[in-house]
Every structure is written in structure tokens, then in C-alpha cells.
Amino acid sequence: MRVLALLTVILTGILLFFGTQDMPNWADPNSPASIHVSPRYIEKTLEETATPNVVTSVLADYRSYDTLGETTVIFTAGVACMLILRIRRRRRE
């Protein structure tokens, strides 16, 4: 079982290594992620949301629906814990 696990992990590692070859270098200002989509958040944040903190403006405005999902996840987890841990009350009869 452990050998199998180790094998899976090594395979995954090789796959990741393989993929990394074409990754942009660290902190490359011209990587696709820095050029596409994200510049607008920085450039328009004041104009469109009047929030200097861009992370906030994305979190609470541009992608606020994700944040709704995020809170729902916490809610789900909370209710889930109560659902799982609630013990049957044994009636003493």
C-alpha cells in the first residue's frame, strides 16, 4: 500500500516537474497572469470601485460572488460539524 502511495506521489511529482518547464519565471512582470485580466483591477479600481486596496475591491466587488460562496462554505462547515457531532440523546427509561 505504501509503495503504491509512494509511486503515485512520485508520478505526480514528475508530472509537476514536467509542467514547470514551461512556467513563467518567478516574478516575471511579463507573465500572462500579469498582463491579462489583472491590470484592469489595478488601473480601474479607483474609478470603478473607489477602493485603493485592490485585493479588497476584487474580493468584495469584482469577484464578490466568490466571496458569497466562501462564506457559504464556512456556514456549510459549521452546520456540517453540528450535524455530524450531535449525539443521539438516549432516553433514560
Partner: peptide
């Protein structure tokens, strides 16, 4: 935009 890091991954 180049003078600020990308905010999206943080979000």
C-alpha cells in the same frame, strides 16, 4: 499596473 503585484491570486 506593472508597479503593483497581481491582486487576483491573493483574492
Amino acid at each position: 499596473a506593472a508597479s503593483y503585484v497581481n491582486p487576483l491570486p491573493h483574492v
